[in-house]
């Protein structure tokens, strides 16, 4: 498996990279971790004429807290996310999700920016970011712009990123005390794309009433899906078997999985319901401490 020939650039600054994107036009692709792009190029499903390697650009790999926001640089690898104490403290679901993404070697290279910018509903971070109400920062020739995660995914491999823009950072609001999160996906074997995956973040008050809920679904919809009805079914109510069942039912109804080798549409809907239930329970348990 060998890619078609291309030209390679490795700019040292973001401005340089953006100007190259403008210069080379649609035939240029950004290379970050490359673990989605290079496999597609080896199969010649992607045949860019230019690769612009942004790995040499400083300032794009970080995990830091600034005020009420956690900022994750686009070039942060899955392994760095997996081992970040800061993320572990605020978002236990990152430990859940990174363990289930591909394998350790891939996680050493694959980046969170690439995972999101690929626009693939089979990837795991889209659902996570939906659950966490993240904001995507894109940088273009006009500077930075913020894209709420709900406006980021447009279609199969399509995102709100314009040509000439580079995803540079993900910002996640630091949740209040009493918040818990969890992620799980069913996979045919370790490292597989999800048969179905569910990310949940819940904030509970001292009485156990759900103040806020975020639920994202992996690989059961053409574009990454927020389970909005499920979130509403929980918000403002105590977490009970009844509200959980309701949330699970809505998520199963609202997604649109396709039948494939991983299972039938019906199976996947049923699995969404099971996982929504399990992840709500797990997130609630974590929220309660």
């Amino acid at each position: 498996m060998i890619a078609q020939s291309f030209q390679y650039e490795s700019p040292g600054t973001l401005a340089e990279a953006i100007s190259m994107l403008h210069k080379y036009g649609e035939e240029a692709k950004i290379l970050s971790g490359g673990h989605s792009l290079i496999p597609m190029m080896k199969l010649r499903l992607a045949t860019p004429e230019w690769l612009i390697d942004i790995n040499g650009i400083p300032g794009l790999a970080h995990i830091k807290k600034e005020g009420a926001v956690i900022k994750i640089g686009a070039l942060t690898t899955e392994a760095e996310i997996e081992h970040s104490d800061l993320l572990k403290k605020h978002f236990p679901l990152f430990a859940d999700v990174t363990k289930l993404i591909a394998d350790p070697q891939v996680r050493n290279v694959a980046t969170i920016g690439g995972n999101l910018a690929h626009g693939d509903a089979a990837n795991d971070h889209p659902a996570v970011m939906l659950a966490l109400n993240a904001t995507v920062i894109a940088t273009g020739s006009g500077g930075e712009r913020s894209i709420p995660i709900d406006e980021f995914f447009h279609g199969f491999y399509m995102t709100a990123l314009q040509h000439g823009e580079i995803l540079t950072e993900i910002q996640i609001p630091v949740p209040p005390a009493g918040t818990g999160s969890a992620y799980h996906k069913l996979e045919r074997k370790v490292g597989d794309y999800a048969t179905a995956g569910v990310a949940v973040q819940l904030t509970l008050d001292s009485k156990g009433v759900c103040k806020a809920a975020g639920i994202g679904l992996t690989n059961v919809n053409p574009i990454p899906l927020r389970a909005s009805r499920s979130e509403k079914a929980l918000t403002g109510k105590p977490i009970t078997d009844k509200t959980i069942a309701e949330a699970a039912k809505y998520a199963a109804e609202d997604c649109s999985p396709s039948s494939d080798l991983r299972g039938s549409e019906e199976y996947k809907r049923a699995m969404v319901a099971v996982l929504v239930k399990r992840m709500i329970n797990k997130a609630a348990e974590r929220a309660r401490g």
Binding site: L31, G34, H35, K42, D53, V106, V109
Partner: peptide, 20 residues
């Protein structure tokens, strides 16, 4: 699998130019 700056990576999915 090889070690690239001490990290295990799959060298079939990395370009030689990336190892510069």
């Amino acid at each position: 699998t090889i070690l690239l700056d001490g990290k295990s990576v799959k060298s079939c999915t990395i370009l030689a130019v990336q190892a510069n």
